[in-house]
Structure formats: C-alpha cells, structure tokens
Nucleic acid binder design. Structure first.
Lengths: 93, 93
DNA sequence: ATTATTTGGTTTATATTATAAACCGCTTTA
DNA sequence: TAAAGCGGTTTATAATATAAACCAAATAAT
C-alpha cells in the first residue's frame, strides 16, 4: 500500500489544496469562509503548506487593508495528484 | 465542505477498513503484513475501529495458537462509503 | 528438562498534529 | 478618543499516531 503524504492527509490542508487546485488564487478570508476553519488553525496550516513548497503565500494591500493571497505551486499540484492516486487504492476507486 | 470522519481519516485505520471491505474476514497477522504496520500500532487502531463499532474483533484458536479475526460491520461499511463520498469532493473526483 | 527464541499480541510512553484560545497592530465607527 | 472589527499570528492544550517495552504461551535448541 502506498504511503499517503502526511502533509496532505489532513482535513484542513486537503481542503485548502483542493480549493487552490481549482482557482488561480484565493485569499485568507475566502479560504477561511470556504473551509469554515478558525483563523488560527488556517494560519498554521497555510504555513505548513508554504514551508513544504506546496503553496505560495503573498501579502499585499487592497486599499488600506492587508490581503494574504495563496496559490498552489507546481510541486503542490504534483503532490496533490500523487496523493489522489494513492488514495484511490484505499478507497477502491 | 463535508466533514471527514476522523476515525477513518487515518492512514492505518483506512488501510484496514479498505482491506476488510474486500474480504469476508482477515486476521491480525494478515492485516499486519498487508499494511506493513507494527503490531502495537495495529492493535491500537483495531481497538479504535472496534470501539466505534466499525469492525468486530474475535479471538479464537487455530490448533494451540491464538488467532484474532476482524470483520467489518454494517455500520463500518456505511461509514466507509460515506467517507469515500465526502472525500470525492476534496479530490475533485 | 530447562533454557532460549519465536509468535501473537497488549500496554505504556513519546513524539507529532490539530485545534482553539489568547493576543496584536491597524482601521473604522461611535 | 475610546471601543469595536478586521486580518491575521503566536502560544498553549488536547488529541492522535506511532513505536518501544513488555507479556504469556508455544516451539525449538542444548
């Protein structure tokens, strides 16, 4: 049985990656709403994905307010796809 | 986004359930080999699945040696199927 | 026949993880 | 100018996964 990438095998990180796979970019507030997570938890998990090189996190401004934007990287995309393939074995798909 | 049953969202427990979904029953030694897990880890995770009512664990003898046999219950089957459906959303399947 | 060794596990300790709570700086509103 | 919100981060706590240590019974070796 293939190993399941532990970085992706976490509900919140997987949800974030899943969203980012489908949109060009998404900001912190959007991800928080979509995933129904707390800000603290989301912040931590984004850091981990970022540290792993699976996403990029960039901070900018929209007017006077800060805006944190996330994108999936090529490495993240590949990791996600491999994770999906590995999971299929487990799910009998 | 649907919640992912935390009992199933664990590599080893998922592997065990995945195996049990396909065979009528499987014993401890077989599960250990197939999942490449340590006995301690497997023992703990089988207990959890059993406590949740997802599997039954029965101890018997084959000759003079003990034999621990596991089967998935109807509740386990249902939970597994729901988990798979929920995951599909995340994986974009 | 007694002393290893192996088999089939369980229990307990530890490291990792997920999660929430508390906090912080900046803005807007009262 | 105080207080309330927004957009987060940091830190503490609870839960989880995992391995290490252990145990009893059976088999093998001396």
């Amino acid at each position: 049985m293939k190993e399941l990438d532990p970085l992706l095998h976490s509900q919140l990180r997987l949800a974030v990656m899943s969203i980012l796979m489908n949109v060009d970019e998404a900001d912190f507030v959007y991800l928080k709403e979509k995933t129904e997570s707390t800000a603290g938890n989301l912040s931590v998990q984004l850091d981990k994905l970022s540290a792993a090189g699976y996403i990029t996190v960039s901070k900018g401004f929209v007017g006077k307010k800060t805006r944190t934007t996330c994108r999936v990287t090529d490495a993240g995309r590949t990791a996600f796809e491999q994770y999906v393939e590995a999971l299929k074995d487990y799910l009998n798909l």
